[in-house]
Amino acid sequence: MTDSGRRTPIRVLLAKPGLDGHDRGAKVLARGLRDEGFEVIYTGLRQTPEMVASAAAQEDVDVIGLSILSGAHMTLVPRIVELVREAGMNDVLISVGGIIPDADVARLKAVGVAEIFGPGTSIGEVARYFREHARPGD
């Protein structure tokens, strides 16, 4: 899909579904990923699963990054994964960042989340993971 040996930038949708009160962390990550050469579509706070899925489909992103601090991940994330797959986006890499109890990590992975990034993860680690795992067909 890329030609002349030049890779086009990986497109990432960063969204904060649910009722989190602030998005400082998500903005820091957006900025960090920009500096790593990603194209970051930032949609802001209080997104419904439907809004996230629709934005991901229209923007044709390679990666969806969900930032959740509210503890509602077990209701929000499986629904988003379901809507995204229903929209025919089978290759898109879905990752979650935030405070996720260990017990839920396996359950989120079982519904199709590729990776979970907890507190203290560096932006470099996230960028490396996205680069290695986005666009599986490429």
């Binding site: 930038p9 050469g37 194209e39 949609t43 439907e50 809004m51």
Partner: peptide, 30 residues
């Protein structure tokens, strides 16, 4: 804009247009 240094970008216009996100007859692309 894309960064002239890294090629990365933050596309943040959509954040102002989220009221149309459930409408299939509005197509927004950054």
């Amino acid at each position: 804009p894309s960064s002239p240094l890294t090629g990365g970008a933050i596309l943040g216009d959509r954040i102002r247009m989220m009221s149309h996100s459930a409408d299939t007859d509005v197509f927004i692309r950054s």
